[in-house]
Simulated assay, not measured.
Amino acid sequence: MNPTACILVIGNEILSGRTQDANVQFLARRLGQLGISLREVRVIPDVSETIVGTIVELRARYDHLLTTGGIGPTHDDITSACVAEAFGVPWEIHPDSFAKLEAYMAPGSFNAARQRMAMLPRGATPIDNPVSVAPGYSIGNVHVMAGVPRIMRAMFENLAPSLAGGRPVVSLAWHADGMLEGAIAEGLEAIQRRMPAVEIGSYPYERPDRRGVSLVSKGIDADAVAEAGVAVRALIAELGYTPVQGEPPSAQPGAAAGTAGS
């Protein structure tokens, strides 16, 4: 079995709808490439008791817990203090991070609020941030990163080589225009029963000029995924549709994706 992971998104702005999360899709794909199975995504508010309790719970359940959000300089950036509490260690200035931030900031601008970004739980290992210097960090199996997508992605790429992974997840997609989920449901279920080690998903799509269904086989056994792909292609053809390998073309700019019906 591959190592497991959970993504913990921290921030009132996500729960209120003010900000749309842009990190989960990126992390899910990269974790799969590293052979780490993403099992859960949880979104929680900037509430100390909730953050501490959730970290304690999830780090015991999964091999890797990745958090995003709440490590900036403002009063509501409380993730780091909560991680320290969850591990029962002090939250304190990390000298090397402090020095890097001080050198990066304009003279006279490294105020008390910005100095908070140099505070880490004792024993944490910084994750380099080539975008804005303020570090993320790892402590135990918890990896704490920024919520700003370009900073989070840069942090993750520096973190990735240190993550214990397994066999990369591979996938194979077939789609057919005009096909509806109701037509393929019975045959698809039969394929899934024959191949329980492969995850087979059905994803309707709708474009201004086309609609149909994409069928994706996914797993860590490349041969099994390929076998499932052959069965899926045969099913599409048997039902009188034209199977096309890969995902359907993306929606045109400004066009909203919808559901293709059943």
Rank of each mutant, 00 (worst) to 15 (best):
D177W: 00
G258W: 11
G261T: 08
S214W: 03
G70N: 07
P135F: 01
L38D: 02
R42A: 09
P208S: 14
R210A: 15
P90T: 08
S214T: 11
P45V: 09
P121N: 04
F98R: 08
A146P: 08
S80L: 02
K100V: 07
L65K: 04
G147L: 07
E157D: 13
G240M: 02
P248S: 05
L172P: 05
R114L: 11
F156L: 07
S171T: 13
S132Q: 14
Q25V: 08
Q192T: 14
L8N: 00
A134Q: 06
G178A: 00
L34P: 07
A106S: 14
L66I: 15
P3W: 04
E247P: 00
M1L: 10
N111S: 10
V89Q: 06
D209A: 11
S138T: 15
L188R: 10
Y205F: 15
I127M: 03
A113N: 14
L163Y: 11
R39W: 12
V225A: 03
V89M: 02
V230Q: 11
A185G: 09
E238T: 05
G72A: 00
V198Y: 07
R167V: 13
D221T: 00
G140P: 07
D177P: 00
Q20K: 11
A84E: 05
G88P: 08
L215P: 05
A106H: 15
R167L: 09
Y241V: 01
L235C: 11
A222S: 13
L8H: 02
Y137C: 04
G166D: 09
L188W: 05
E92R: 13
A103W: 06
G35L: 09
D63E: 13
V142P: 02
P135E: 00
A81S: 12
A124G: 08
L188D: 07
Q20G: 10
V52D: 01
V47H: 13
E199S: 13
I7Y: 03
P73I: 07
P90M: 03
S97Q: 04
P107Q: 12
L58A: 02
A118R: 04
H94W: 04
M195I: 13
E189K: 05
T125E: 13
I55E: 05
D63H: 15
I184M: 15
V131A: 02
V41D: 03
M195T: 12
D77W: 01
G165T: 14
A86L: 12
P135W: 00
T54S: 13
A103S: 14
L66T: 05
R207M: 01
A255E: 11
Y205L: 03
V133K: 01
L38E: 00
W91K: 01
I51P: 02
E57P: 09
N23D: 12
R61G: 03
A81C: 03
A234C: 00
M152G: 01
S132I: 12
G229F: 03
G229K: 01
D46Q: 02
V133F: 05
T54Q: 14
E238R: 09
Q192C: 13
P107T: 14
M117Y: 04
R211E: 10
M155N: 07
E181Q: 12
G140N: 08
D63L: 06
V213A: 01
I200A: 04
R153K: 14
A154P: 07
E186R: 09
R29L: 14
L58W: 05
L159I: 12
R122G: 04
E57S: 15
R42C: 12
A28K: 10
Q252M: 10
S171G: 14
P126Y: 02
V198P: 08
G17L: 08
V43L: 10
